[in-house]
Write a protein that binds this DNA or RNA. Structure first.
Lengths: 210, 210
DNA sequence: ATGAGAAAAATTGTATCCATTCTTGCCCAT
DNA sequence: ATGGGCAAGAATGGATACAATTTTTCTCAT
């Protein structure tokens, strides 16, 4: 039998949401712009039904705002926006670290990410960074926490991802500290380290954005 | 002109979601039951489009699960479910306390809730308890955090709310401790106290459910 | 100019229709 | 008798058309 990539991987509403998300984050759709159902559907080559659902997904991710009978306005990055995003992520990821320690979860995947991050250069730092965080979420054993953090990661604030070497080095060092504390099952230390890591990333993002 | 209550307060999809939420939490729709679009739409007296959107809201709240092309199954309370809910809430509400302290927010509304909780009996404890927590979220100044916690509060685990006097007393004492730490701007203390308060509530819920 | 009111445009909800997919149950071959 | 496969049925996912409401804009009379 032929081995072909399936035509349909996800529901159309999610493809639409992904496409719009990318456009908003890359700022090819500008802040404050008004999205109408019909024009968006036409631009995506689909009907309005899945577009309506995609709008709700994006609203949940904080990329657009839905007003009663008035449609969707594209939200932009703002300092307040960034702050809110990172404050929540700091709390949740710190909790994930705490849970990993308390449950004595398997750390092999996390370790793999840390060492990969060491060996490879900074060019694909973004993916490795995400893997490191994601595997911690997974190891926490709280599937709902994984869902919430995944949604946050899709949000606006993660849009402008840095590839600067300087940032990658600093971040890598912090990842190693976090991992060592996880390995030592130091719940307080690991969660505090993760919290600090994320809040410092927030400051980086804020200054870069400003 | 006549002064009448508007017939339509919220979008139909949200009314539908609210109606289904209530039915699921009160267990008039049982765990594991399969909800079909058509029958649900007929039962609610609306068409299927807003029902589909309501299903997605409920799935986000963790009350149902949507399977590809197979509809919605009603989820039940499980220990894992409860744990995940409270772990996340503990992290977020502790963060809210931290933010309240760091930002030096206005505490008057929160104080009002604490003293109301003192003066009135335990009969309307549920509402007062919610007000206390809600006003802390608000005072954090993080609107996204408010949204996320509101969604969590709508979830399954909050369904069986206790009115037992014993619990209300214990909880009230903890609320007072939390408030005093907020007033002293002790971010670490307040967040730790809130965290403990919620995790203890979790234990109560787990033993009661078991 | 200003304000009332009509007209246009967009969302929200309704009603069908079709394609795809998942389940179920039956039939048949072994 | 049992297990695999096939067909029928049901339900979702999406498309399309339309009615109803609301918002915005534009016009026109005062």
């Amino acid at each position: 039998m032929l081995n072909l990539r399936p035509v349909k991987l996800m529901p159309v509403r999610e493809q639409a949401a992904a496409s719009l998300r990318e456009a908003i984050i890359s700022q090819s759709i500008k802040q404050g712009e008004m999205l109408t159902l019909e024009s968006t559907a036409k631009a995506l080559g689909i009907s309005v039904t899945p577009v309506r659902e995609a709008f709700q997904i994006l609203a949940r991710d904080g990329l657009i705002e839905l007003a009663q009978n008035r449609g969707a306005v594209v939200l932009g990055m703002s300092p307040k926006n960034i702050r809110e995003h990172y404050e929540i992520r700091a709390a949740l990821e710190a909790e994930a670290c705490r849970l990993v320690c308390e449950k004595g979860a398997d750390l092999s995947e996390i370790e793999r990410c840390v060492s990969h991050l060491v060996s490879s250069g900074a060019e694909n730092y973004g993916d490795l960074n995400q893997s490191f965080h994601y595997n911690i979420w997974l190891a926490s054993g709280n599937t709902r926490l994984v869902n919430m953090l995944s949604e946050l990661w899709n949000g606006l604030s993660m849009g402008l991802r840095t590839t600067k070497n300087e940032y990658a080095r600093k971040s890598q060092a912090e990842h190693e500290v976090i991992f060592s504390m996880l390995k030592a099952s130091d719940a307080d230390g690991a969660s505090r380290a993760m919290r600090g890591h994320i809040l410092r990333s927030m400051e980086d993002m804020l200054t870069r954005y400003k």
